[in-house]
Design a protein around this nucleic acid. Structure first.
Length: 276
DNA sequence: TTTCTTGTTTTCAG
DNA sequence: ACTGAAAACAAGAA
């Protein structure tokens, strides 16, 4: 379940491992991962050199020479590994990028939910799925005044509002539950009912939590690991996610699990009072 | 066989 | 035209 901290950790790992390398061949073993024509995908990337790796929200941006970018979303379980060409292909390996160094960049995805597509580097921000994204929470584009204004104009409950990537990007199910617990806000609270102080608390906690999680190399729940196949450490810092029935670390009340917007949602019924 | 998992896209009602 | 809620979708593990 890679959210911003996990995607950023993957990005940093790949940056060290594959930037500067040239692609000499691509083996697509499961074509549905590719949005658009797989044949064109292979052809376009052939002999391209990887210049840098960026990130927008939960999307990885592999920037190649000649104005070409490969946009990659890991969805639930996508992973990248580096292997020597002679190493056996592991289960659930769907795309293999042969590199000039003799190494391979392998995309592995148990669920096959991840997607990749090509775009011109200078047009990436205009792709339909990236053009509507909100500000990056760890950049100076993320501003309390804008955040508060957007929240107060939103008619949704706070949990789905934070999951939807238009107010701010990067939060998924785990970090939304954590940020709401830290801010002592019930997940079903309507956004327009939030006070200025609550909006400010959310703003602050989003930044602090994501910063801390990036520093810890992300959260490993079930299967996430980075490009070095290291697990994250932030799962030890979680307060509510996956803690149903355990005592709240603030007040001792048992953590409850409910369903909000079809998602498993963990909260403390004492610290995070239900809206009236 | 049924249930569970989540990020994004699509669909539909209003 | 727009919004929000809900469903759909991707596919495998337990």
């Amino acid at each position: 379940m890679p959210e911003l901290p996990e995607v950023e950790t993957v990005r940093r790992g790949l940056e060290k491992l594959v930037v500067g390398q040239r692609i000499t061949a691509i083996d697509i073993r499961y074509p549905k991962i590719i949005i658009g024509s797989p044949a064109e995908f292979c052809q376009a990337l052939h002999n391209k050199k990887l210049l840098s790796i960026g990130r927008r929200g939960k999307f990885l941006l592999f920037n190649f020479d000649q104005n070409l970018t490969m946009v990659s979303h890991l969805r639930m379980e996508g992973k990248y590994f580096i292997r020597r060409s002679d190493q056996p292909i592991e289960k659930h390996t769907h795309i293999i990028f042969q590199l000039a160094s003799g190494q391979q960049l392998r995309y592995n995805d148990v669920r096959k939910f991840g997607r990749m597509q090509l775009a011109k580097t200078d047009q990436v921000q205009n792709l339909p799925n990236l053009s509507k994204l909100g500000p990056e929470p760890l950049s100076t584009d993320f501003k309390l005044t804008d955040f508060t204004r957007k929240l107060l104009h939103c008619k949704k409950a706070i949990k789905p509002a934070l999951l939807d990537q238009t107010i701010v990007v990067g939060l998924g199910n785990i970090y939304v539950d954590e940020v709401l617990w830290l801010s002592q806000i019930h997940p079903l609270t309507s956004c327009y009912e939030l006070t200025a102080k609550q909006a400010a608390d959310l703003f602050q906690n989003i930044i602090q939590e994501l910063t801390a999680a990036v520093k810890a190399g992300g959260t490993t729940v079930r299967t996430y690991s980075d490009a070095f196949e290291h697990s994250g450490k932030f799962q030890f810092a979680l307060h509510v996610y996956g803690k149903e029935g355990q005592p709240c670390q603030r007040c001792g009340t048992k953590i409850q699990k409910i369903r909000v917007a079809q998602r498993g949602t963990h909260f403390c019924p004492q610290c995070q009072q239900a809206p009236v």
